[in-house]
Design a protein around this nucleic acid. Structure first.
Length: 578
RNA sequence: GCGCUGUUAGCUCAAUCGGAUAGAGCAUCUGACUUCGGAUCAGAAGGUUAGAGGUUCGAGUCCUCUACGGCGCACCA
């Protein structure tokens, strides 16, 4: 248990006894300025306001009645009614004893485990994955890891699986939309040529582009494209065969990218899987008087959301992605037993999801529905990031470039590496940097992408944190150890006490990132930890002082484990040396 | 027009659902290499948090208005 939580329990118990009407909130927080103390509570001021008492007097009382645990200093009142607490070195040592025995490294268990479906990534068939998919892919992956880890916990977790969230990662592929009419049109006009695996996606994109151009400029072609789609959707064998080919080739492309990113799914289920459910979904909404017909189409209305209605069936009888999403919710609630469904998409779909959730709830959906949205990745010109020719930047090119740049830097820093080693490390560093840089900014904001920032080695970057990790490994190697010793930690210097206190905050950081669905909180924590480790490293010799050696090696080992675990929650691998 | 969202140091970003003197990195300047890995560390400088009101012990954070930007508003996904 973290120092903060230990104190939190004491203070919140006092709050519950004396001010039962106050809404629960975390009363104990780390001080922003160490000079005030290590932890503070503003409880007295909030309680004073609610009960019209004097805040300083209340703070004095809190001080007297809320004894901190053994080994802490006496609390003190400051400012308008803050109460400050300071931990002593022995208490920090004791807390570390608990931390080093905790296989979960301080990550708390959820009290109410849920079955959670996370819908993320969702690329379209016959199109290369591009830069627009990266945030959803990485954010969704991190959320899945965070939510899983929060509950599952490492080894102890197997015993406690039933106490953890059960996370199902879903890739909802765009494999059934109107783009297939245009694609089929051009593909068949070209005589259905074979699709070659190594450039399959490029070929398919080219056909789509042709079909799109033709259809846009020629109403007759547009009509043909519509006919192609209709033929596919009623199950024409030849079109179906073509469609399957497109899906297969696209799946290979996705698989290669997910493999490189180390992202996996429990369920890959495209829009086509819901095709047969759609008439029933619309009929059900009509039966329940949630939907109505309007100008030949079927719509849902809710003036609280918008004037314009939500379209679930076109006047020509075709269905839309709204309909598919409604069908998917039913499937996930009924078949996957989801208590909660989390959608990870860009900000532009907010209105769609408001409609979707509202409609689903009105039709009786019990699952909690959540839209976790994120901003756009911008180029240096503050416009959405594009490749040189103006098309969306392809993910595969992004990964390639990341590796090239990482290799170039490695070659100057580590000319001694063997070619094989160089390749492996360049690949890992490139991907680690890319993943970290993408998850560092608050997901709600647009952010500006630059290669310089991405692969920089100083500042808040993956290489900086990995460097700290590598140094922890290096010291243990030098000490002749495979893993950390498990010795009591004796705090003797300020820089090691600071390091220890940060280590003890890991659980809080993970919990915050998971609760907020914002992995960037974890990035901030890891950066702080890596920075403090570097300062500790400067100030505190580890191997030279026999009396402190085991204690400090334990601290070093714990730092390494938490860095590794934290990075892995972000989907970022570590390496033993770089 | 309606709605969502944003504006913090020259640049890129933080700030734990209202807490103490708003923090980092880059860029600029100054130091520390007989190193447990210098891909590091120490320090300087840089701010009226877009602007104006309001709420209160306390506002970058909440409310109102204004300015500027991004995005979305049936028959694409």
């Amino acid at each position: 248990m973290s120092l903060r939580i230990e104190l939190e329990q004491i203070v919140s118990a006092w709050a519950a006894r004396n001010f039962p009407d106050l809404p629960p909130e975390p009363w104990v927080r780390p001080c922003t300025d160490e000079r005030h103390g290590h932890f503070q509570t503003h409880l007295a001021m909030v309680a004073a306001k609610a009960t019209k008492q004097n805040p300083r007097e209340l703070a004095e009382r809190l001080c007297k009645e809320c004894f901190p645990p053994e080994g802490w200093e006496k609390p003190a009142v400051a400012g308008a009614g803050f109460v400050n607490y300071r931990v002593g070195p022995e208490a920090v040592g004791h807390a570390l004893d608990a931390l080093r025995r905790d296989p979960d490294l301080g990550i708390p268990k959820v009290t109410k485990p849920e079955t959670i479906v996370i819908d993320f990534s969702s690329p379209n068939i016959a199109k290369a994955m591009h830069v627009g998919h990266i945030r959803s892919t990485l954010l969704g992956d991190s959320l899945a890891r965070l939510l899983t880890r929060t509950l599952l916990g490492d080894s102890l977790a197997r015993l406690l699986t039933r106490l953890g969230h059960r996370v199902t990662r879903v890739n909802h592929l765009g494999d059934w939309g109107t783009q297939f009419g245009k694609l089929l049109l051009a593909y068949r006009a070209a005589g259905r040529p074979p699709i070659e695996s190594d450039r399959a996606i490029d070929q398919l994109e080219e056909f789509y582009k042709q079909g799109h151009q033709h259809a846009e400029s020629d109403p007759a072609k547009m009509e043909q494209a519509r006919a192609e789609l209709a033929a596919l959707q009623v199950g024409d064998p030849e079109r179906l065969q073509d469609w399957r080919l497109f899906c297969e080739k696209s799946a290979e492309h996705f698989r290669r990218i997910y493999e490189r990113l180390d992202v996996r799914f429990d369920s890959v289920r495209g829009e086509s899987a819901y095709h047969e459910d759609l008439p029933g979904v619309v009929q059900d909404l009509l039966d329940k008087d949630i939907a109505e017909t309007s100008q030949g189409a079927v719509v849902v209305r809710n003036p609280e959301i918008a004037e314009e209605p939500y379209l679930i069936r076109k006047s020509d009888g075709a269905f839309l992605y709204a309909t598919t999403d409604l069908a998917a919710i039913r499937y996930r609630a009924a078949e996957l037993k989801a208590d909660r469904i989390i959608y990870v998409t860009d900000a532009r779909q907010q209105l769609h999801f408001r409609w979707l959730f509202d409609t689903a709830r009105r039709s009786g959906c019990q699952a909690i529905l959540e839209h976790v949205w994120f901003g756009t990745i911008l180029g240096p010109d503050r416009k959405p990031l594009k490749s040189r020719d103006g098309t969306p930047l392809k993910l595969i090119d992004l990964l390639h470039e990341a590796r090239e740049r990482a290799r170039a830097i490695l070659q100057t820093k580590r000319p001694d590496l063997s070619p094989v080693d160089l390749e492996t490390k360049a690949d890992l560093l490139g991907i680690a940097s890319l993943k970290y840089a993408d998850q560092l900014p608050n997901r709600n904001l647009d952010y500006v992408f630059t290669w310089e920032k991405l692969l920089a080695f100083d500042g808040n970057t993956a290489p900086y944190i990995l460097n700290a990790y590598v140094r922890t490994r290096s010291i243990l190697r030098k000490a002749g150890l495979q893993k950390r010793p498990d010795a009591p930690v004796k705090i003797s210097q300020l820089e090691e006490e600071r390091l220890a206190r940060i280590l003890l905050r890991f659980g809080d950081a993970v919990e915050l990132a998971a609760a907020d669905r914002k992995p960037h909180h974890l990035c901030g924590y890891l950066y702080e930890l890596a920075g403090q480790y570097h300062r500790f490293f400067e100030a505190c010799p580890v191997l030279q002082l026999p009396a402190l050696r085991d204690s400090r090696l334990t601290l070093v080992g714990l730092t390494g484990e938490i860095l590794r675990e934290g990075l892995s929650l972000l989907g970022i691998p570590t390496l033993e040396e770089m």
